[in-house]
Simulated assay, not measured.
Amino acid sequence: MQEQRIVTITIPGALPTMNEIIDAAKTEPYVYSKYKKRYTELVHWCAKGKGRFERVDVVITWYCRNRKKDKDNIMAGQKFIFDGLQAAGVIANDGWKQIGDVVHRFETDKANPRVVVELTEVTDGSGAA
């Protein structure tokens, strides 16, 4: 039996929430593309050199400063994570063939907000779509 590879990537700070993206877009027309570029590059650099996976299950743990933001609002940053993983060459794409299960967990850490992404290689052949 082949051992599963597991890689952990830590992204410092917080990614923009859905509400932050929407509010900023109301004041500046191209803010989403600026956010996308900035945060995709951040994830890219955090994931660089972590290897390449054909298919992964993903656990994202959001360490938030406090509990003021709704979980569904926080999870919008997932887009930047998957795009950054692609940019770093960790995954070829973020479609059904490359991404298996996605689990979100939420914790608080006032002193050290961050996002921890755990990638577990899927080796059972269930990636065929």
Rank of each mutant, 00 (worst) to 15 (best):
Q2K: 03
Q4M: 03
V7G: 07
T8A: 03
T10C: 08
I11Y: 05
P12D: 13
A14G: 07
A14Y: 04
L15W: 07
P16E: 06
P16K: 04
E20T: 03
E20Y: 00
E20P: 00
I21M: 05
A24M: 03
A25S: 09
K26Q: 04
K26V: 01
K26T: 03
T27F: 04
P29H: 00
Y30A: 09
V31H: 05
V31M: 08
Y32M: 06
S33P: 00
Y35T: 07
Y35A: 12
Y35N: 09
V43W: 08
V43M: 12
V43Q: 08
H44N: 15
C46H: 09
G49M: 11
G49I: 14
R52Y: 11
F53R: 06
D57T: 06
V58S: 10
V59L: 08
I60G: 11
W62S: 11
W62F: 14
R67M: 10
R67Y: 00
K68Y: 02
D72V: 04
N73G: 07
M75F: 08
A76Q: 11
A76Y: 10
I81L: 11
I81Q: 12
D83L: 14
G84L: 13
D94R: 13
G95P: 12
Q98S: 15
D109H: 01
D109R: 00
D109W: 01
N112M: 01
R114S: 09
V115S: 05
L119M: 10
E121P: 03
